[in-house]
């Protein structure tokens, strides 16, 4: 029988290794089955819903949507895991800490400037840089304002994250206000978030390479991240370079968030749900929690995109962010309740 000693995020998992691999296998299987559903779910114009292998003429759109959902979902899942581990806060996520809104603001500013200079909209590959600047800027601001006596305070972190997220939201509205009516519609549509059906191959490769590179980096840091989850003093005492780890981790989380937002627009709460699901199944050790978070994020976004194809009230598929925000909002409240009890207990 596995023993879990709960110390916030620093749960020491003594679950046998085969069970952890089983969890990874289960997540992979869930992703594959959902991907198959997404590929074969057929909703012809004016017809009912059924299952059929798509015509070669339009199967590429489903493959592209699938690839985009896997890469963006995986990136957000991994970014969420990094933020929760580095901040030792189960409520941390790119969305809650303002990284997603910051990336969105970066893209809006670049779209506005491109429009002012007479250009057209930015393709995702070129949107990654401004998104990265916005995402890292927002994360840096949150950390800078929430850090007290050398470490980020969990409650402050959330409060400052909400405020920075709101400020970035206000910035997005400001730039929306500045552009003419036609472009305003495009801005609004982008803000709803969606999984694109058509992406140039180079952009698709870039989007897919980000979470893979992130996973490789996280696996390399896995031991240090495990040790860092205990406490800052304990981690330092066993030689973990806490500051360097934190800096590298935040940079990576910012980059992953930026890449995801550049592809799909803001998708709420995915970075919160995926790491919890992953740790619940594969345990907290980063060697398995990292690939599990990536798989869980990818699976959840593919699932949300598949559900969005089913729900069409005559105005086109529902934005998948609606589903992730609904599920994530409920999970956030549950976690907030638990964290409050945990804090009151003096942990």
């Amino acid at each position: 029988m596995p023993v879990h000693q709960d110390r916030g995020l620093a749960t020491v998992n003594t679950a046998p290794q085969p069970r952890r691999w089983l969890a990874l296998g289960a997540l992979t299987l869930a992703l594959l089955i959902t991907a198959l559903l997404r590929l074969t779910l057929d909703h012809p114009p004016g017809g009912g819903i059924g299952f059929a292998w798509p015509d070669p003429e339009w199967v590429r759109y489903r493959w592209t949507a699938l690839a985009n959902a896997v890469s963006a979902g995986g990136a957000l899942g991994l970014a969420g895991l990094l933020l929760q581990s580095l901040l030792r806060n189960p409520l941390a996520s790119p969305y809650v800490l303002g990284a997603s809104s910051g990336a969105g603001l970066g893209i809006m500013v670049s779209l506005y400037l491109t429009h002012r200079m007479g250009g057209t909209a930015l393709p995702p590959a070129r949107a990654t840089l401004p998104a990265l600047a916005g995402s890292l800027g927002a994360l840096g601001l949150v950390l800078g304002l929430a850090t007290r006596r050398g470490g980020p305070d969990p409650v402050n972190l959330l409060l400052v994250g909400v405020v920075v997220s709101t400020l970035c939201g206000a910035g997005i509205l400001f730039f929306q206000y500045l552009v003419p009516m036609g472009l305003r519609g495009e801005f609004l549509t982008w803000l709803m978030g969606h999984v694109p059906q058509a992406t140039p191959p180079a952009d698709l490769m870039l989007a897919a390479s980000l979470p893979l590179a992130g996973l490789a980096f996280t696996l390399r840091m896995a031991g240090a991240l495990d040790a860092g989850a205990l406490s800052e003093e304990e981690a330092r005492s066993i030689g973990v370079p806490v500051n360097a780890l934190r800096l590298g981790g935040f940079l990576l989380a910012g980059l992953l968030t930026a890449g995801a937002v550049a592809v799909t627009g803001p998708i709420g709460f995915l970075g919160l749900i995926a790491p919890h699901l992953a740790r619940g199944m594969a345990g907290p050790r980063h060697a398995t929690a990292a690939p599990a978070s990536l798989l869980a994020g990818a699976w959840l976004l593919v699932l949300a995109d598949t559900a969005s194809q089913l729900l069409d009230f005559g105005t086109g598929p529902m934005p998948p962010g609606v589903f992730t925000a609904l599920a994530g909002g409920v999970l956030f409240l549950v976690l907030l309740h638990r964290t409050r009890s945990w804090t009151l207990d003096g942990m």
Binding site: P45, G46, W58, R62, G185, T189, D312, G314, G316
Partner: peptide
């Protein structure tokens, strides 16, 4: 309403458009 929706100016459902 019987005429299928294939997207709008900002977001086109390419699959439906082809179909």
């Amino acid at each position: 309403a019987a005429i299928p929706v294939v997207g709008d100016l900002y977001r086109i459902d390419y699959e439906r458009l082809i179909r």
